[in-house]
Design a protein around this nucleic acid. Structure first.
Length: 552
RNA sequence: UGGAUUAUGGUGUAACGGUAGCACUACAGAUUUUGGUUCUGUCUGUCUAGGUUCGAAUCCUAGUAAUCCAACCA
């Protein structure tokens, strides 16, 4: 009866594992390294890991992969937790790979005892040389045949701090001639005399990713350890270590990471944009970070819908940022309060109108139970400068000499006269209004094609409005030659210092979403102060006229 | 150049040997007091060449292309 939604390959695996009784319930994990802020690519992973567990009645752990003290920081831990919760997910346990340092050390000792790990005194250059190349097998380290006793002692000495950084490493004994480079005796422990954000100075040796991640999965009894494609070559090592240690067999599955047009999803590169001041910080509204998107006015619902729609598969992809914008609009259209704000004012004088009256306008026409707000109407108004043309093309149905338009929720007006200064600039448009055309009580029988937003000059309040465009000039940044920073869009931020808003906007709240009629979706920025309101444009409205103009 | 992974409209993603579907985009139209929303319709696709089969996007073989792998990063 119901249209069965097709499953992605991970859902198929989970359903099969549940059906076969391999697992009674599933446990996934989201494993960020706290060395940067989360971005839209992480959002995909979060939705996948938490979503899968949610769908199949399992749970998800948040585990910080904090095995490299020199790049990690609690600032990042806090931002990551905030971002996940803002997206609408809650982890079962908050865990840290560093919680397992003692246990991991024990695993390493066990491998040594089994003759499967050895302390290597080679330099990093020597080890790199021993690795060989993808087409040539590696060679064995001269330290590979040390006795178990000697290895045990040396490893204990490493932990005790008897050696300097880089002097020794612990390597696992796998296969130097494997076609898989990761199996050529990978390093599993290195010496770093560095302060760790959680363990402080308790350790001077730290496990490598390959020896921390899979073992942490196993300790937590993660059933489905989901990561991105570049970890495929690590899977044999992941399985090998679990097998040798005879611990809980977690399994790793890989999906294709998200790539977005006109954006980058590399923590390293995003960090560069921040430190080199191309943007204003990790939460700059132009950034594809979760905190940036939040500040810009994207909603969790919109982002989650996006992650749902892009799907999950194993082939490389480049997703049109337009889809993200579509999802954000779709949600905001239902949520946003409508307000009128003029960015680039043109004065309109209604010559046959006197006094002031209060009109009502719906807060949200999409809401069947919409509330209404008051809007003052008077003789002198501002409309958008681009909503008037002295010489109008055929399909232009905004204001022009002799032409009529409706002022939203108010009256139909007719342009009678254009006033210019000595330089020929239009300074004012003089109109008459049709008294019988009042919104909601229109008996004029006149039909106009255009409806404009407007504000009463005497009642207008002031606000700063920030308009954002894509951060990069090119669609596929990764495919371009040279430095990615050469492709940063210099016009990605446009500030309207003094926009004129209807008075109702004075009551704006940080939590509220707004649609500035015909302008886009906006939210209040944290830079708002007593003196100045600041709004960010999350996304524009679709603009059929702009498209028409572009076509010529 | 060894290994691994992937290949379906412009972009994503389904079809699990039996009618190539859905979404976004684009285009055309209807409705509209937002050139928004909503609604209707249209265009465009199985990497190539062989093979198996009554029947292949799907299975096999050989190509081709893209991505990843030689950090004491994750």
């Amino acid at each position: 009866m119901s249209e069965e939604k097709s499953l992605n390959f991970l859902e198929e695996i989970v359903e099969e594992d549940l059906k076969s009784g391999k697992y009674a319930s599933i446990l996934t994990r989201f494993p960020p390294e706290p060395n940067g802020y989360l971005h839209i690519g992480h959002a995909k992973s979060i939705c996948l890991n938490f979503g899968l567990a949610q769908k199949y009645g399992g749970a998800t752990n948040l585990r910080f992969d904090d095995t490299n003290p020199v790049t990690e920081d609690t600032e990042y831990v806090e931002s990551i937790k905030a971002d996940i919760q803002w997206l609408g997910f809650q982890w079962a346990k908050e865990l840290y790979a560093s919680d397992y340092f003692e246990q991991l050390y024990g695993f390493a000792v066990e491998l040594i005892k089994k003759g499967l790990a050895y302390v290597d005194d080679s330099t990093s250059e020597q080890i790199a040389a021993q690795k060989g190349t993808p087409t040539q097998p590696g060679t064995k380290s001269p330290y590979r045949s040390r006795s178990v006793e000697e290895n045990l002692q040396l490893f204990a000495d490493m932990r005790a701090g008897k050696y300097k950084d880089g002097e020794k490493v612990l390597r696992v004994k796998v296969d130097m001639s494997s076609p898989n480079m990761h199996m050529r005796d990978p390093i599993i422990y290195r010496i770093k005399h560095a302060h760790h954000h959680r363990t402080g100075d308790a350790w001077c040796i730290y496990p490598m990713y390959d020896f921390a991640h899979g073992q942490s999965d196993s300790i937590e009894q993660i059933t489905h350890s989901i990561c991105t494609l570049e970890f495929i070559p690590h899977r044999p090592l992941y399985d090998w270590l679990i097998q040798q240690l005879e611990i809980f067999p977690s399994h790793q599955y890989e999906f294709a990471r998200l790539n977005l047009t006109y954006a980058i999803t590399s923590k390293r590169k995003l960090l560069q944009l921040v430190t080199e001041k191309f943007v204003d910080g990790w939460d700059d509204p132009r950034m594809p970070t979760i905190s940036g998107m939040r500040r810009r006015g994207y909603t969790p619902e919109g982002i989650r819908e996006f992650c749902e729609r892009i799907g999950v598969a194993k082939r490389d992809n480049l997703i049109d940022v337009g889809l993200l914008e579509f999802c954000v609009r779709e949600h905001l259209n239902k949520e946003a309060q409508r307000r009128m704000v003029v960015f680039d004012p043109l004065k309109v004088v209604i010559t046959n109108y006197e006094g002031v009256e209060t009109l009502k306008s719906e807060d949200n026409p999409e809401d069947p139970n919409t509330t209404y707000r008051d809007i003052p109407f008077s003789k002198e108004l501002y409309i958008e400068r681009e909503d008037f043309m002295e010489v109008a093309p055929k399909k232009y149905f905004r204001l022009a000499p002799g032409q009529m338009v409706r002022l939203k929720s108010a009256y139909i007006i007719k342009c009678e006269e254009v006033v210019k200064d000595e330089a020929g600039n239009i300074t004012e448009v003089r109109c008459t209004y049709i008294p019988e055309s009042k919104s909601g009580a229109d008996t004029s029988g006149i039909n106009v094609k255009g409806t404009l937003h407007w504000v009463s000059i005497a009642h207008a309040i002031h606000a700063e409005v920030r308009l954002y465009d894509r951060l990069f000039k090119v669609e596929n940044v990764a495919n371009e030659e040279g430095d990615f920073k050469d492709y940063v869009n210099p016009d990605s931020l446009q500030i309207v210092q003094n926009a004129y808003a209807e008075p109702a906007l004075a009551n704006a709240k940080f939590s509220d979403r707004y649609q500035f009629l015909r302008k886009g979706y906006f939210c209040m920025d944290k830079d708002t102060s007593e003196e100045k309101m600041v709004f960010n444009r999350a996304v524009t409205l679709k603009d059929a006229w702009a498209k028409e103009v572009k076509k010529g």
